[in-house]
């Protein structure tokens, strides 16, 4: 297990190095002057030269890369050109919206998908299964922003249970923060839950056909006991893969939902930064997202090993 974890850690480190090199290369090394790009075609040469100096573009490529990486390691992501504020502060505000939202949506997705998938698998071919599968078909097909608008119409405008948008911040208390994230989280979670429930169901059905389920039944376990004690844990491997992918998507992919609910999240930040050609912000936010995705994949790898003892011995 230690070997396996160390191996995964090495792979995590390598992935981060490669990712930072690629991002750096795309933004700063490929032909074209970032400073000229940021200022637009009509910029005066002395403005461009000033920005170049400010961005540190005059050094060698190695110096700039090392400077960027060591800066980030110390929490210094540079200063946004458009807003004139440190990027770390801008990210700091927004990550506390995007990260909780992603976790919230993922928890909802799992809470909906696991029971639905297990229920459908346990009644394969019967009305319960057909009903759940029909619902997930709809969930997969309908885009999340449509759910978002329906949720706003019902729960914010008609019932007035939630506000239609905006984020109250965490200073007013955890409960009020969670409340303002609830509708967006549901809207994000529903399509994800539909996919996850289908994966859970098919993975469980595969497991229920395995020989060891028959062995468990021969020991005297009922169908339900065999499913819960022997099939579910074995069915988790493909489900964990999907959960990892979904978390990555939820972190940055919530941009449309952030727009619908006026949430100050990372998605909006990166969208605004791209529109304003603020490469410093773009570079840092992309690197941060890549970092989070790689860490999530590492966590998924560890979860695999926790579920399946065969992976622990295989390096």
């Amino acid at each position: 297990m230690i070997r396996y974890t160390l191996g995964r850690l090495v792979s995590l480190g390598l992935s981060l190095v490669v990712a930072s090199l690629v991002i750096f290369a795309v933004v700063e090394v490929v032909p074209g002057d970032p400073a000229a790009y940021m200022l637009g075609v009509n910029a005066r040469p002395d403005t461009v030269a000033a920005l170049r100096a400010e961005l540190g573009l005059d050094g060698t490529v190695q110096e700039r890369y090392l400077g960027w990486v060591t800066g980030m390691l110390q929490g210094d992501f540079g200063v946004s050109y458009t807003y004139r504020t440190p990027v770390s502060e801008m990210i700091g505000d927004r990550i506390w919206v995007s990260l909780p939202l992603a976790l919230y949506a993922l928890s909802l997705s799992v809470l909906i998908a696991f029971p639905a998938g297990i229920y459908a698998a346990s009644r394969r071919g019967r009305p319960g299964d057909i009903g759940v599968m029909g619902a997930t078909q709809l969930g997969v097909a309908i885009p999340n922003f449509w759910f978002a608008m329906i949720l706003v119409l019902i729960f914010a405008i008609k019932l007035r249970w939630f506000s239609a948008g905006g984020f109250s911040g965490w200073d007013a208390g955890v409960w009020s923060g969670l409340k303002s994230l609830t509708l967006p989280a549901i809207a994000l979670a529903l399509p994800q839950a539909a996919i996850l429930a289908r994966v859970m169901r098919s993975s469980l059905l595969d497991m229920l056909g395995e020989d060891f389920i028959r062995t468990a039944r021969a020991k005297g376990l009922s169908r339900r006991q065999a499913l819960w004690r022997h099939a579910v844990r074995n069915a988790l491997i493909p489900v964990l893969t999907i959960i990892g992918l979904q978390f990555s998507f939820l972190l940055a992919g919530g941009i449309v939902i952030e727009q619908v609910f006026f949430l100050p999240g990372l998605g909006r930040l990166i969208f605004q930064a791209i529109s304003a050609r603020d490469l410093i912000v773009v570079e840092s936010v992309v690197m941060l997202l890549v970092f989070l995705v790689i860490v999530v994949n590492f966590a998924v790898d560890l979860a695999y090993a926790a579920v399946d003892p065969r992976l622990r011995t295989r390096a």
Binding site: E210, D211, F212, R214, T215, R233, N234, D308, P309, R310
Partner: peptide, 10 residues
């Protein structure tokens, strides 16, 4: 089939 008759994760 003894190879598949046992639950691999227990």
């Amino acid at each position: 089939e003894p190879m598949t008759a046992l639950n691999p994760v227990q």
